[in-house]
């Protein structure tokens, strides 16, 4: 059983929902990323999505675009990001880490080399925004060989036939994009999400995490009620942007954001 599968299974047994924060690796500085990852876990994260910065993040709104720019200013490379996970694993061998990003840095490193290094470092899953399963023929077997979970996106525009096909290519969980838009936009409609996620559950046994538009404890609880987990990104990254100068202050701010979400999600279980 993969680390992700284990965590998801344990949560389900406790009737709890996964809290999955996203931060961009190397933002605001490569030296603090590992520290921030531990902070996220202490504040209640079940899984961490660690963003691999890319020069052209087409699916992201301005908040994560700027995070990529801040990170790339320090020359953060995919190899370094993998190194951060390795460092993180020295203290934490329980919390799954999913690398989230775009295909080109991985392609430049080479899929074999990437998968080997990532698996050795303790990476658990990979979510590549611009890689639909149709284009993953070369990549998927390499991931499977290294026991990396392949996490794919589902969207409001995904027709049923594709939901089934995508789920078949996925392991760990599937990531449902809550609205038609880029990250950080605030236009989530919880009723629509509920309907769609219920429908996805009919088509796959995999846990469904929902991301895009989750900003606070209230939206986290509302989405948590209808899914298996919530992914929180832009609001955290925005907090990083506003507290770049002082790491201790930043860690407090991230905790203040995430902790109420954890409590709100856990209150659903009772």
């Amino acid at each position: 059983m993969s680390r992700i599968e284990g965590v998801m299974k344990a949560l389900k047994e406790q009737n709890r929902k996964a809290l999955i924060p996203y931060i961009t690796a190397g933002d605001p500085h490569p030296d603090v990323t590992v520290d921030l990852m531990h902070t996220l876990v202490q504040a209640g994260a079940d899984i961490i999505e660690l963003g691999v910065p890319f020069s052209d993040p087409m699916a992201d709104g301005p908040v994560i675009q700027l995070a990529c720019e801040r990170s790339l200013k320090h020359g953060t490379s995919l190899r370094q990001v993998i190194g951060m996970v390795k460092e993180f694993r020295k203290q934490d061998d329980k919390t799954p880490v999913v690398l989230m990003g775009y295909l080109n840095p991985m392609e430049a490193m080479g899929y074999e080399a990437f998968a080997e290094a990532a698996a050795d470092a303790g990476v658990d899953g990979v979510l590549t925004v611009d890689l639909p399963p149709e284009e993953a023929d070369d990549v998927a077997p390499v991931f499977t060989k290294r026991k990396l979970d392949a996490i794919f996106l589902l969207a409001p525009t995904t027709i049923d036939q594709r939901v089934r096909a995508i789920a078949e290519h996925s392991s760990g969980y599937v990531y449902y994009v809550s609205f038609k838009g880029v990250t950080g936009a605030a236009k989530i409609n919880v009723d629509e999400v509920a309907e769609k996620v219920a429908h996805i559950h009919e088509m796959t046994a995999l846990p469904v995490g929902v991301g895009f538009g989750i900003r606070d404890a209230e939206t986290a609880a509302a989405v948590g009620r209808v899914s298996d987990g919530v992914i929180v990104g832009s609001v955290l990254v925005d907090t990083i942007a506003r507290n770049q100068a002082d790491t201790e202050e930043l860690k407090r701010a991230l905790t203040d954001l995430l902790h109420p979400m954890r409590e709100a999600l856990d209150s659903l279980a009772s």
Partner: peptide
């Protein structure tokens, strides 16, 4: 059928755009 010219081309976009 998938838009490939040899090793090139294809459809590398986020899921939201695939249906369109």
């Amino acid at each position: 059928a998938r838009g490939h010219f040899g090793a090139y081309g294809g459809r590398f976009v986020s899921e939201t755009l695939m249906d369109s």
